[in-house]
Structures are given as C-alpha cells and as structure tokens.
Design a binder for these strands. Structure first.
Lengths: 207, 207
DNA sequence: GTGCTTTCGCTACGATTCGTAGCGTAACGC
DNA sequence: GCGTTACGCTACGAATCGTAGCGAAAGCAC
C-alpha cells in the first residue's frame, strides 16, 4: 500500500490496525469536509493516531487519499451473468455504485487533478485503481471470447488499443454522468449506454 | 462572469482589464503551481492587482478557477465538415485540444471535485462550461437531421435522454483518455472512438 | 466644476494549517 | 534482555487565509 514494500525486518512493526483506521478516517473526513477541507491533523484525530504517524507513512494528502479511495475499488468483480452485454452492465453498475458514494466522488477527481502535475502520483493511481479496472475489461473480453461472442484476437496491438478504448469509454462515461452531469447512472441509463457501446463495437469491429 | 450581473449604475466601474488580467494570471498560476499550489495572493501579484480586489469579485478559489477555465471553452465551435461523422470528429478534436492544455487539465478536474460538495459551484460549472458543450451536441444533431443523416425527432423525452447520453460518452471518454489514462486523444484515437460511437448510435437507435 | 458613489491599492491583523524536530515509551525479533 | 523501529506527544517557525481600515482614483448626475 505505502511505498515501503521491502520493509525492514527488525524493530517494532507498523500497526496494520492504524493503517485501516487512518484510511477509514480519511474516507470519513472526505465525506464530511471534502477534499479541500480535509486536513491531515483532522484525519489523525479521527483515526486516534498521532499526526506524526501519518507523515511517517504517507508523503502527503495526495498519496493518502489515493490509497483511501483505492480501497473502495477492491470490491469490483466481473459478474458472470451469461452474456457479454449482461456482464458489462454488471460491471458498469458496480462502478457506478462506487462513484455514487461521496467519499469516492470527492476524492477521486481531486487526486486525478493533482496527478496532472505529479508523475509519481499518476503512477500510484494507475497501479492501485486504474489497472484494477482495466483488468475487468480484459477478463470480460476473455470470457466473451470463450463463449464465442467475440472473435479470437489476431493482432495484439490492435487488441490492446481496443481494450484501452473500451476502458476509456466505460469509465469516462460513468464518471462524467455521475460527477459532471450529476445524474445517477441507474439501470436504465446503464442499459442504454451498454447497448450503444456493444452495438458500436460489433459494427466497428467487423468493418 | 461574476455574480454581479445587475450591477449598480453609479460610482467607479469595475475594471474590465483587471478581470482579464486576473483570469489570465489564474491560468498561468495553474500551469506553474497546479490547483493545490495556487494561492489567491499569488494570482493577485501576477495580475498586478491587490488581493482585496480579488476577494471583492470572487468568493474564493473555486469560483475563480471555474471562470478562468471556462474561458478556454469559448473557442469551441461546431465545424461544418459535411457529414455527421466528420463533424463529431472535429468537435472531439477541439475538445481534446483544450484538455491537452495544462491549465485545463489541472483546473477542470479540481473544480469538478469541489463541486461534488457545493451545489452553487456545480451550477456555475454547468452554466459556464457544460451547457456550452452540450449545445454543440444539439447543434451537430440538428445539422445531421437537416442533411437527412438522422431521422427527425419524435419523442422529446427520448431525444433529450439520447443527447445526454451522447454528451456523457463524448466528454467522458475524452476526459478519461486525457486525464486518467494520460494518453493523447489524437486523430487516430478520435477516429476510432467516433466510429464506435456512431455505429452504436445507429444500431441502437434503429432497434 | 462640484458632489456622490463605488472601486482600487495598500497595510496590517488574528486565526489556521502546515510539516518537522525532539524526546521518552512501547512493541517486536533475536 | 538488547537492539531496533514505531508510536504518542509537544512545541515550533513558516506560510496562507480572509477581513478591516484607510486615503486616493474614477466615473456619473447636476
């Protein structure tokens, strides 16, 4: 989670409970105060830890919020509903449900904004959030190919570009619907979106 | 631009030059410092005005940045390239070009994040940025109908929902591609995206 | 030209937050 | 136990915030 993967082996270990408490407190503070109102001092008080403990583990607000928000995406799964369309609808609905939560709304866009000027932060977001989502696209595609709904891949580069496009279209549309248009990505909307997306992929792919 | 539309008629008028200088300075500061590093004191110095002048016109950082970023979208136009596909590609490319600018990247997502907890700010964004974009979708659609590329509208509600969906798909995909995936929305990508979108709309619309 | 009104630039201020340093204590591996 | 590291706590200088008060400037009405 933090940057300290090859941790030391001696001395007092870091409290895993403190980690969980801090991340939970961060999400709670995001809901109540929003991004700009969130302070590390406040998070420390909520989590019941010292402010210095926070600074020992995270470099700053950006990194902390990325990790706190990333945990929300742990619950993403590829449902097996029997068809590509149903699977995609399921994933999109899960994604929409996460974005409907205020701690995700306030935090996600803010760290993305900060990441435009911070390469390390962008990489952290990619590793802990984006790649996890993109994996769902690939898994759904593989399952559809096993069912015969999609042709097997021929050109690897073309396939990768297509996956990237699908990912940007799915995540982008849901994010924009939820955060910018401020309308719920409910079942009706998701159904319409999925139909357009799949029809377009089928038609454009065969062309 | 500011909230003071029904301005008073007597006394010294506000300097329009100061407005322009402040908004330009805000964009400049966004490029150099990013959202979190931007301070109103710094903007005031860059613009050559007093800090108090800033606070007299804008309530805070959020409102100022919204106005500064909104000006970037003034240049959006609906091109007349002769076909719906070409028109859409043109709009998407313009949108991508704006998002490629660092002052837009840093500022836009940040204010969207803040707007998740601020209804007034959300309305300000809608009025000065989103509606302007959505108008392009409607204009392009009308032109395509005049050409006979799209059938005339029958159900008003259905039409409005379709326009909203198109808007979320276009803006969302470009934003996600540019800011999250951090890849350029170049001509090749836009072409592929437009093909999928139009194919999907044609297929789903006729179903 | 003379007032009236509003904006402007400037300075100063208390309040708040930041991120760090220092220190003694607590918890683990050997 | 011993060494090592994490923890809680306190305190600190630095920076930013948003506001108040003042005199001067720039328009409009007459």
């Amino acid at each position: 989670m933090q940057s300290r993967t090859p941790a030391s082996r001696t001395g007092r270990p870091r409290s895993a409970a403190a980690d969980a408490a801090i991340l939970a407190a961060t999400r709670e503070a995001l809901v109540e105060l929003g991004w700009s109102g969130l302070t590390l001092s406040d998070v420390a008080i909520r989590a019941g830890v010292a402010k210095t403990t926070l600074y020992r583990r995270w470099a700053g607000k950006n990194e902390l919020v990325v990790d706190a928000v990333a945990e929300l995406f742990d619950e993403l799964r590829v449902p097996d509903r029997g068809s590509l369309a149903a699977d995609i609808e399921g994933v999109v609905l899960q994604f929409a449900a996460i974005l409907a939560r205020p701690e995700a709304r306030s935090g996600l866009m803010a760290v993305v904004a900060e990441a435009t000027r911070d390469e390390a932060l962008r990489e952290r977001i990619r590793a802990s959030i984006v790649d996890r989502q993109k994996h769902l696209v690939l898994a759904g595609r593989a399952r559809a190919q096993a069912r015969g709904e999609l042709p097997a891949e021929t050109d690897a580069g073309r396939t990768a570009r297509a996956a990237d496009l699908i990912f940007d279209m799915v995540a982008g549309a849901v994010v924009h619907r939820t955060l910018v248009s401020a309308e719920p990505a409910d079942e009706e909307w998701v159904h319409g979106f999925t139909r357009v997306l799949l029809s377009g992929l089928a038609a454009a792919g065969s062309a």
